[in-house]
């Protein structure tokens, strides 16, 4: 059975990536683990854009440009998040979200 040129296959994969990212967000107990899980959510969105770009869009460059935009956003988000986590770890000696959720001392 050929499933690789069917739009619904890619949409289901993207939905599963979103769900896995959500699960990791809830389940992980460290900020870096939550950051890793958020990458899955962003990748699910980008895969969705690319699937619609290939199968339904009139201009096949738009989806690629948007997926590239998402990659740039994810890189910027990861840079900022990693530096925030380093600062938080320096100040609290801990990166458990349950301990640092007060955001001040």
């Amino acid at each position: 059975m050929i499933i690789s040129d069917n739009l619904n296959t890619y949409l289901i994969i993207a939905a599963l990536l979103l769900v896995i990212g959500l699960y990791g967000m809830i389940q992980h107990r460290s900020l870096i683990g939550m950051l890793i899980s958020s990458e899955f959510i962003l990748n699910g969105a980008a895969l969705n854009f690319m699937a619609f770009n290939t199968f339904t869009a009139p201009n096949p460059a738009v989806g690629q440009i948007y997926a590239l935009f998402i990659m740039g956003l994810a890189a910027a988000e990861a840079a900022i998040a990693v530096s925030i986590i380093i600062v938080v770890y320096r100040r609290f000696r801990n990166e458990d979200p349950a301990i640092i959720q007060d955001m001040k001392y």
Partner: peptide, 19 residues
Amino acid sequence: LIYVGAVCIMIAMGIMLGN
């Protein structure tokens, strides 16, 4: 290039600098 090469390495650096 961007994800596997840059973002993953950056997160690995963050892990090594943190806990």
